[in-house]
Structure formats: structure tokens, C-alpha cells
């Protein structure tokens, strides 16, 4: 079976041998990149700078939380607010693959800029196995271009370091526990973030809707799990659909958008089953979303598809 301690020793040694001079790491605050930051910082210390990019697609309170968490981890770090650039770049973009590629390229341009200031020649990424598998290439079909693989521009100047390339999420969590990383059990969150949880163009307005819906969904599910009503799913979130439907709110006709709630159980993200959430919990999510967001949303549906045939995220 997978030996986390041995893996850490091997990778620290490998990074120490491989990286000359300085490096930056693309840090999202998720378990993959945080594990990577801990390993690489163990190997090269202050020659590493963790760069967190606020794309404007982050969840509620996320940027402030990650900033604090990286501080506690004791890694050299900085937060870059690039939200205007991202919303500009995605103006009119609705195709999911296009979104992922635009976001991937933008990430690299921001990292190149910061690397130059820090005088770094390496970019460390927390890429894991499903990222490059699903991104395709050669015989393998492209299921979705993960921003850190399929979104990389051809003329990138930084050398890539990806210590977790052959691991799946469950193995990364084992490494995270061995390193005593506080986000070891945090649910996965995609790099393109809420931009791919809005079907259609991600604007400040549409992203704000799905941000609130995600916050409600996370909060209700976490409360129910803490109260012993259900087991915490592997991943759980909300998606904003471009579908409008008729409703009645306070004796007045409503014509609002639809939120899809998605929750799945998985081990490695390569296959998944939808979570059998108790109806009472689903109802609380639905009522709270439609009551607090009544101007925008008047219908909530639950996604009951496994992977395959669906993927976990909608785009």
C-alpha cells in the first residue's frame, strides 16, 4: 500500500536536486497545492514563494481564509487580486473548454509576472493524476482540460515541478495527514472555481449568485453532517443553470433561474456515485436558497447522476 512518509522523503530529496535558485508555487488553499507547498518549502525553504490568485471566482470568504491558512503553514506567500483581468478575459465566453483554457492561460501569465519579480525559474503545481488523465493527449480523449495541464500555453517560460503527478486525492490526503496539514480533509474545489459552476458567461453578477448558493449548500450539508443526520459527501456544491422557470413567490409571479445542487461520494474522482442526501436536508437547502435569493432563483433541483456517465463538476 501507499507509504506517505516514504513519499515525502523521496519528493523532498527530488525537489532539492531538481530546483536551482527560486521557485513559485500556484497555491489555491486546497489540499493538493498546500501539500505541495509544504513539501517544496521543506526542500528549498525561503527560495519558495506561494502565490494565491484571487480570480474573482472564489467562494465566500475564501481569499481571506486561505491567506491566513498559508500564514499558519509558515510558507512565504502572497495574494494577487487579478479579478478584473479574469472577468475581462471571459467576456462573452460560454463554451466550457474555452473557459478552462482562457483561465489556464491567464493563471500562467499572472504566475510569469510574479515569478519575474521574485526571480524564480520554476513553477510548482499541485497537479494530480486525474488532472492530466482527463486533459487527454495522444490516444486519450479530452474529457475536460484541467487548467493546470490543458490550459498551459505553448510558449510558457517557467519550468514545471509537479511532485504529486502520480497520486490521487485519497493518497494526497494521506500525505497531508502525515504532514499535519490543516486542510487535509477539505473538499475538492476546481482551479477555474465558480467560473465553471455558472453555465454560460461568468459575470460578476452570475458568479455572485452561484457563490451564495454554494455557501448555503455547504453550510446546510456540513451542519447536517455535524448533527449526525448524514455522512459528509466527498464533494458538494451548487451550479447555476441558465434555465428560467415560472414560480409564485408571495402571490406574485416569479420567473427566475435554477440552481442545481450536486453532492457525490468518491475516493479518487475517477468514478463517483451521487450522495443519497436525506430529503429533509435537501429541502432545507432548497428553501433557504429560494428565500434568501428570491430575486434571482425560484427553483432548486438535485443532480442524481453518477460518474460515468456524468463528471462531478458540470463543465
Amino acid at each position: 500500500m501507499f507509504d506517505a512518509e516514504k513519499f515525502i522523503d523521496q519528493q523532498v530529496k527530488k525537489v532539492r536536486d531538481e530546483v536551482e535558485g527560486r521557485a513559485i508555487i500556484a497555491a489555491s488553499g486546497g489540499v493538493d497545492s498546500t501539500v505541495c507547498a509544504a513539501i517544496v518549502s521543506r526542500a528549498i525553504g525561503d527560495r519558495l514563494l506561494a502565490v494565491y490568485v484571487d480570480t474573482g471566482f472564489m467562494r465566500k470568504g475564501e481569499t481571506a481564509n486561505v491567506d491566513k491558512m498559508l500564514g499558519r503553514l509558515g510558507v512565504n506567500h502572497m495574494v494577487v487580486d487579478a479579478s478584473d483581468e479574469y472577468f475581462d478575459a471571459l467576456k462573452g465566453v460560454t463554451d466550457p473548454e474555452r473557459k478552462r483554457k482562457v483561465i489556464g492561460e491567464k493563471f500562467i501569465r499572472v504566475f510569469e509576472r510574479e515569478a519575474k519579480k521574485f526571480d524564480a525559474g520554476y513553477l510548482v503545481q499541485g497537479t494530480i493524476a486525474p488532472d492530466w488523465i482527463e486533459s487527454g493527449g495522444g490516444l486519450r480523449d479530452t474529457i475536460k482540460s484541467h487548467h493546470n495541464v490543458g490550459g498551459l500555453p505553448a510558449d510558457m517560460h517557467l519550468k514545471l515541478v509537479e511532485p504529486l503527478r502520480d497520486l490521487y486525492k485519497d493518497e494526497v490526503r494521506k500525505v497531508a495527514r502525515a504532514l499535519k496539514i490543516e486542510v487535509a480533509e477539505k473538499q475538492p474545489f476546481p482551479g477555474p472555481a465558480l467560473a465553471i459552476r455558472v453555465m454560460g458567461e461568468p459575470t460578476r453578477e452570475s458568479v455572485a449568485i452561484v457563490r451564495e448558493a454554494c455557501a448555503v449548500t455547504e453550510d446546510e450539508i456540513e451542519k447536517a453532517a455535524a448533527a449526525g443526520e448524514m455522512k459528509l459527501p466527498w464533494q458538494y456544491f451548487a451550479v447555476l443553470l441558465p434555465v428560467r422557470s415560472v414560480g409564485v413567490q408571495g402571490d406574485i409571479r416569479a420567473y427566475g433561474f435554477t440552481i442545481a445542487v450536486r453532492a457525490v461520494d468518491s475516493v479518487d474522482a475517477m468514478s463517483a456515485v451521487y450522495s443519497k442526501i436525506p430529503h429533509d436536508v435537501l429541502e432545507r437547502i432548497s428553501t433557504r436558497i429560494t428565500n434568501t435569493m428570491k430575486e434571482k432563483v425560484n427553483r432548486v433541483v438535485y443532480d442524481i447522476t453518477d460518474k460515468p456517465p456524468a463528471t462531478i463538476e458540470w463543465e
Binding site: 500500500m1 501507499f2 493524476a129 488523465i133 482527463e134 495522444g138 490516444l139 486519450r140 480523449d141 474529457i143 502520480d166 490521487y168 479518487d268 475517477m270
Partner: peptide, 18 residues
Amino acid sequence: IDNGGQWTHREWRVLRDL
């Protein structure tokens, strides 16, 4: 032998786990 499947790497992982 990799024929381009989504789960090729999983096969490697299970063999390694064993």
C-alpha cells in the same frame, strides 16, 4: 499497456497497491 483509457493509471495504481 496504455490504449488511452481514462482508467489506465488506475490499473497501475491497483497493481502497485497490491
